[in-house]
Write a protein that binds this DNA or RNA. Structure first.
Lengths: 158, 158
DNA sequence: GTACGATCGTCAACGTGGTTGTCCAAATCG
DNA sequence: CGATTTGGACAACCACGTTGACGATCGTAC
């Protein structure tokens, strides 16, 4: 109680949050690489998640991710080249190109979910399940809900 | 105790950590822009911090940030152009180009520290100071110490 | 039925940030 | 003194984002 805030400089908090995020993502992709998905990048998992089971279009994907339709289209191109997504014509609208996850994409998504669960369990084993729950609850209270913007590289970089 | 992990899917944890990091950084730069630093990007603060009060060289900066000397040099170029850093010759080694923060750079750093303190205080007001302390302590236990890699865009993106 | 506006996808140009490879100049070492 | 190491810069490239422009297609209003 006699410890003012000067004991805890504010700049450490974002650093620790970033470090936490990054270790989780790094561990995930190290494990995914071991499980046959060495080409999946951190961004790709979010994109696959955003495409979802029903498929979508590049424009809609851009809206979901908070990026332009052009950027979304380019990312889809790369994931198509890697075999995680596929394009198809929309029979009801010749302008639209449907984007769907392939079998490989579904496999990557399934494995990602499993690894994330394992990583969370590892944190719970270290910190206690209640502490991890509390961390999530607290973060939810200080961050906007429905947070799903993926313009991180551009945002972080420039 | 009767609630298995399925109640808390693991993929939310990294999302919440990222959201927490990002809201802090976004709020910081919105405030910095208001205080006369509209050109400071999220990355720049970390770079200025890494340059430090004593100055350094591009190669050393790259080592501190975990990026190549070329990448560090390019970032220094941009910060020099923005007036936050300056180069000088090393009188004792003609190969080395010293990199120092300018007055403007120091001002940005000082304001950043102040805003980070305010943001942390805001979290403490919402969650309770003990919860924020606990979050930091917990994160420290599950992340490598001395974590200061700044290759985030390249790491996240490619 | 046709003309018009909105929408989808793509192409092009550009900016930021990262990488590797190459090379020169300067310092250090034998 | 010559040989090696080191610092900085240049070039080419990749991943990711942006805006602007432009066909092709759809829906609608007339």
């Amino acid at each position: 109680m006699a410890t003012p805030e000067s004991e805890r400089p504010g700049f450490l908090l974002p650093l620790l949050l970033l470090a936490g995020f990054r270790t989780l993502i790094d561990d995930l992709h190290a494990e995914l690489a071991r499980q046959g998905h060495p080409d999946l990048r951190p961004l790709h998992g979010f994109v696959l998640q955003a495409v979802g089971a029903d498929g979508t279009t590049a424009t809609e994907l851009g809206q979901r991710l908070g990026i332009s339709k052009q950027a979304a289209g380019k990312t889809v191109d790369r994931l198509v080249a890697l075999g995680y997504l596929e394009r198809a014509d929309d029979p009801r609208d010749a302008r639209r190109k449907l984007v769907r996850t392939t079998e490989r994409g579904v496999d990557g998504l399934r494995r990602s979910a499993a690894v994330f669960d394992q990583l969370r369990a590892r944190w719970a084993a270290t910190l206690g399940a209640d502490r991890v729950d509390a961390m999530e609850d607290d973060l939810r209270r200080v961050t906007p809900a429905h947070f799903f913007r993926l313009d991180v590289p551009g945002w972080f970089g420039g």
